[in-house]
């Protein structure tokens, strides 16, 4: 029997008051696939990710992660299924320093989290944490409280926390917005290579078409809450209708 896809969404609907934020969305992400979502602001991309991670509950439709239905589960339960998420607006702990974020995320993914005698900066995870810091070029900021670090670094820290969970599926909401365009490509190159190397399935929302074209296996184009096109980057990005709607 074929293994269940990493994520299956079927006929999702959600509206806020009068606004239909997501209308009849169906989408499948195969295991190990990297899918990009593009679309204008307000198209419902973040709302979709919120539904896939249990923050919002779809009014109708089904979501399965690795074959397991997750509608009605809390974000925590879904995270335990191996789904990690980074946010459009970084959700980090303003008063804490950068390196502790990663230590905490790393501890959260391992047994022994509740052991009160194991320090946060345990030797087992120290290596991983340092590598993550270096990977996202956050090492110079390691001891700074995140309240004061630049927006780009906050976003990277958010992504780094998601990665520290060693997820099976990762959902990244505009991971490179706020990162300078000079660093963007290099960062995404390493990020996507790392994801592929460990077989992590991924969805990322992105506005930079260069990035989409280079790193996505497939692209889903969103227009006003619905999926307008899905296909390979070459096909989709050269479609004149897509250009008209998105660019």
């Amino acid at each position: 029997m074929k293994a269940a896809p990493a994520l299956e969404a079927e006929h999702l609907f959600l509206s806020f008051g009068g606004v239909q934020a997501v209308r009849d969305v169906s989408l499948t992400v195969a295991t190990g696939e990297v899918l990009a979502i593009i679309g204008q602001n307000g198209a419902g991309k973040s709302t979709f990710l919120n539904m896939c991670t249990g923050y919002l509950r779809p009014e109708r439709g089904a979501i399965r992660i690795a074959g397991c239905s997750i509608v009605g589960l809390k974000p925590r339960a879904i995270a335990r299924l191996g789904v990690a998420r980074a946010f459009q607006h970084p959700q980090i702990f303003p008063q804490r320093c950068v390196i502790d974020h990663l230590r905490f995320a790393s501890a959260a993914a391992r047994p022994g989290f509740w052991n009160p005698f194991r320090p946060l900066n345990s030797p087992q995870s120290a290596q991983d944490v340092l590598q993550l810091l270096a990977f996202f070029a956050l090492d110079k900021l390691a001891d700074q409280p995140v309240r004061g670090i630049p927006e780009g670094a906050r976003k990277l820290l958010d992504v780094a926390m998601a990665l520290a969970l060693e997820p099976k599926l990762i959902l990244l909401d505009e991971p490179t917005s706020g990162v300078s365009s000079a660093e963007k490509l290099g960062l995404m190159t390493r990020l996507v290579h790392a994801l592929r190397a460990r077989g992590v399935s991924a969805i990322f929302v992105e506005h930079d078409m260069d990035v989409v074209a280079r790193f996505a296996d497939r692209v889903a184009v969103w227009v006003e809450g619905a999926i307008f096109r899905v296909g390979s980057p070459e096909d989709v990005l050269s479609d004149p209708e897509v250009k008209e709607h998105v660019l």
Binding site: A79, P94, F104
Partner: peptide, 10 residues
């Protein structure tokens, strides 16, 4: 600081 992030870390 940010409870929702803790939940998202499982």
């Amino acid at each position: 600081d940010r409870e929702i992030r803790i939940e998202y870390l499982g």
